[in-house]
Amino acid sequence: MTAVTLFGLCGAALVGLGLYGLIVLPGALRRIIAFNLLGSGVFLLFGVIARRGGGAIAGTGSDPVPQALIITGLVVAFAATALAVALLRRLLQETGRDDWDEAGEADR
């Protein structure tokens, strides 16, 4: 198994891990982190595909087109995370809680 395949499998596992956390974790902060984990796994898969497409010409070890898409994706993911954190902090300010379930549900 090559290193590229190894990181590809790692990316696939991270997507699954992030998805699991997004569904089961209580509290908005932990879901935001899990969402970032999921995104990071997708970026790794992109990076693996870029690496496999590289080396076709001298000087590039990795296909620059997916690389540029990953950079764009990282910045957009940060912007989305900032907006999500702003919503969470406003929710904390208004209600003092970090979740939007009904009060009865949270006590399960």
Binding site: L9, G11, A12, A13, L17, V48
Partner: peptide, 12 residues
């Protein structure tokens, strides 16, 4: 999650 991860691993 395991199904999604497994599918992606197969793609890789």
């Amino acid at each position: 999650s395991a199904t999604v991860a497994g599918g992606l691993a197969a793609v890789v």
